[in-house]
């Protein structure tokens, strides 16, 4: 396993401790996000994945340690400086009723605007590109609340793309989408990664899709990193047992040859005993 592939880190944490209401959720975490790769955070509900992502996005002030962006402590950079390098899509983002796709995507240009510099032709261009790549141009003048779940999620992705950042942090971008739309959305992200070399960090619940689309997996167990590395390295029966408390078999994905997790569950066990 060649670990040198992952040695370049623009975004990293050192001894990071994050807490909600004084209760530490992430403890003394050291983690480097490989530049130009797709990193997927996996872990059980409530293990601290979302908290970690919010910490990486400068939305949560660390109790201890620090997040570094390009070697600088992220809380010493201004909000707009960070927003030009790093875009974040929260888990269920909210939009006011009646907001159109174009208006939403245009808001992604906020970090580049000031009291004097309002709307530039570059802003116009970036919004157009973001709409094009997410295939939302046709729907640009539709209100967000008239769209399907998949289209709405693409509109939000377009907003983050208009922000024109090298790094994207996505908190469960596929929640509430059916399988076809999940794959559709992940294909879009993969395309962005391939064409523009974007660094993507996302949380996914589907382990098989995580292995398929992730270059790098981070398994988190109760606020600590349990394992990191390529899907082949991280996705083991032991990891799934320890991190998710689930018995499973790991087989090769017949389509992509990446690891695939087949859960055991009670039904199968009793069936096996019966035979």
């Amino acid at each position: 396993m060649n670990q040198n592939r992952f040695c370049d880190h623009r975004l990293e944490t050192k001894q990071l401790t994050l807490a909600y209401d004084g209760v530490p959720v992430v403890r003394n975490l050291n983690l480097g996000i490989p530049t130009g790769k797709i990193t997927v955070l996996v872990g059980a509900n409530g293990c601290g994945k979302s908290t970690l992502l919010r910490g990486l996005a400068r939305l949560l002030k660390p109790k201890g340690g620090m997040v570094y962006l390009d070697g600088k402590a992220i809380f010493q950079l201004s909000g707009k400086t960070v927003a030009k390098k790093l875009g974040m899509l929260p888990q269920s983002p909210i939009a006011p009723e009646g907001l159109t796709v174009r208006d939403l995507v245009a808001m992604g240009r906020y970090p580049y605007q000031s009291w004097l510099q309002q709307w530039s032709s570059e802003d116009e261009q970036k919004v157009k590109e973001a709409l094009d790549i997410t295939t939302m141009t046709e729907l640009a003048d539709r209100p967000l609340d008239n769209l399907s779940g998949g289209q709405r999620q693409k509109a939000w992705i377009a907003m983050v793309l208009a922000q024109d950042t090298d790094i994207l942090l996505l908190d469960e971008p596929t929640t509430f989408l059916d399988l076809a739309h999940q794959v559709d959305l992940l294909d879009l992200l993969y395309e962005l990664h391939q064409q523009q070399g974007k660094t993507i960090v996302m949380i996914l619940h589907d382990l098989n899709l995580a292995c398929r689309y992730g270059d790098y997996l981070v398994a988190i167990q109760q606020g600590k990193v349990y394992a990191t590395g390529t899907p082949e390295r991280v996705m083991t029966e032991e990891m799934v047992r320890e991190v998710f408390g689930l018995e499973c078999r790991i087989v090769a994905d017949p389509v992509a040859d990446t690891p695939m997790c087949i859960p055991m569950g009670c039904k199968v066990k009793s069936d096996i005993l019966r035979h």
Partner: peptide, 17 residues
């Protein structure tokens, strides 16, 4: 205020104080 109507997290990750 228009930006803030996207929610606290989104507004902050767009760089708003």
């Amino acid at each position: 205020i228009t930006i803030l109507s996207l929610g606290e997290d989104t507004a902050r990750s767009l760089g708003q104080s």
